[in-house]
Simulated assay, not measured.
Amino acid sequence: MLEEKAPSVPAAAALRRELAARLPGAAADLDVLHLVCGEFLANAKEHGGGLQGIRVGRTARPGTLRVEVDDSNPAEPVVKPKDVDAITGRGMFLVDNLALAWGCTPNGTGKTVWAVVPCGDAAA
């Protein structure tokens, strides 16, 4: 399991590099994984009261990875209706459509937002 405690904005790029190194045969799947990780990181920073940690690891289901991001705001993320005129607010809509499953769990200090994404080489 790849784990990063209290990552900063540069940690998103570092996370993408780490995932690409660990999953060299999964280039197409990495785009979905990167998008989900990036959206969760951005939401934690903008709406979550501060990022507390991120984890990416294998699931019991072959060919999938689970992404988890902890932040300090207990409010659940919201999937906004598609609005072609909006400049922002599409992130969770994309997560909802690209992830195999996603959800939110209270963690005592805020919440953990998680998603299961396809990954042909789930070796993280």
Results as ranks from 00 to 15, higher is better:
residue 33 L to H: 00
residue 4 E to P: 04
residue 74 P to D: 07
residue 69 V to P: 00
residue 116 V to Q: 01
residue 60 A to C: 07
residue 53 G to Y: 11
residue 58 R to A: 09
residue 76 E to M: 06
residue 27 A to P: 02
residue 99 A to W: 06
residue 43 N to T: 00
residue 3 E to G: 00
residue 17 R to Y: 15
residue 64 T to H: 11
residue 124 A to P: 06
residue 16 R to L: 13
residue 19 L to C: 10
residue 30 L to A: 00
residue 48 G to A: 07
residue 121 D to P: 02
residue 85 D to K: 15
residue 82 K to Y: 12
residue 72 S to F: 03
residue 88 T to R: 15
residue 27 A to C: 07
residue 5 K to D: 12
residue 100 L to G: 04
residue 72 S to W: 05
residue 2 L to M: 09
residue 37 C to H: 06
residue 122 A to N: 11
residue 42 A to F: 02
residue 71 D to R: 02
residue 41 L to N: 00
residue 90 R to M: 13
residue 78 V to I: 12
residue 109 T to D: 03
residue 98 L to C: 05
residue 122 A to Y: 13
residue 32 V to L: 11
residue 105 T to K: 07
residue 11 A to Q: 15
residue 67 V to A: 07
residue 110 G to W: 07
residue 123 A to L: 10
residue 81 P to E: 13
residue 99 A to H: 08
residue 102 W to G: 00
residue 111 K to H: 09
residue 46 E to W: 01
residue 38 G to N: 04
residue 94 L to H: 08
residue 60 A to W: 08
residue 32 V to D: 08
residue 111 K to Q: 06
residue 48 G to T: 01
residue 107 N to G: 03
residue 106 P to I: 01
residue 3 E to Q: 04
residue 59 T to L: 07
residue 111 K to G: 05
residue 7 P to S: 08
residue 31 D to F: 09
residue 120 G to A: 07
residue 41 L to S: 00
residue 95 V to R: 12
residue 63 G to E: 10
residue 79 V to H: 05
residue 61 R to T: 14
residue 59 T to H: 09
residue 114 W to Q: 03
residue 14 A to W: 14
residue 18 E to M: 11
residue 80 K to Q: 10
residue 98 L to E: 03
residue 105 T to W: 01
residue 53 G to D: 08
residue 83 D to R: 15
residue 33 L to K: 04
residue 68 E to D: 09
residue 94 L to E: 03
residue 110 G to A: 05
residue 79 V to K: 07
residue 80 K to D: 05
residue 109 T to L: 05
residue 52 Q to V: 09
residue 97 N to A: 11
residue 84 V to Y: 12
residue 17 R to T: 14
residue 73 N to I: 01
residue 29 D to N: 06
residue 124 A to R: 11
residue 103 G to L: 08
residue 10 P to L: 13
residue 101 A to C: 12
residue 16 R to G: 10
residue 77 P to G: 02
residue 71 D to N: 05
residue 51 L to Y: 05
residue 46 E to C: 01
residue 81 P to F: 06
residue 120 G to S: 09
residue 23 L to P: 01
residue 42 A to I: 01
residue 42 A to M: 03
residue 118 P to W: 04
residue 111 K to D: 00
residue 98 L to K: 09
residue 7 P to E: 14
residue 19 L to E: 11
residue 96 D to V: 06
residue 8 S to Q: 10
residue 88 T to M: 12
residue 102 W to S: 02
residue 82 K to F: 12
residue 94 L to I: 02
residue 62 P to K: 13
residue 122 A to W: 14
residue 57 G to A: 13
residue 54 I to Q: 11
residue 56 V to K: 12
residue 102 W to A: 02
residue 27 A to E: 14
residue 10 P to V: 11
residue 70 D to R: 12
residue 26 A to Q: 05
residue 106 P to C: 02
residue 63 G to C: 05
residue 91 G to T: 00
residue 45 K to E: 08
residue 47 H to L: 08
residue 53 G to A: 13
residue 6 A to L: 15
residue 84 V to I: 12
residue 37 C to A: 04
residue 61 R to N: 03
residue 99 A to L: 11
residue 50 G to K: 07
residue 120 G to C: 05
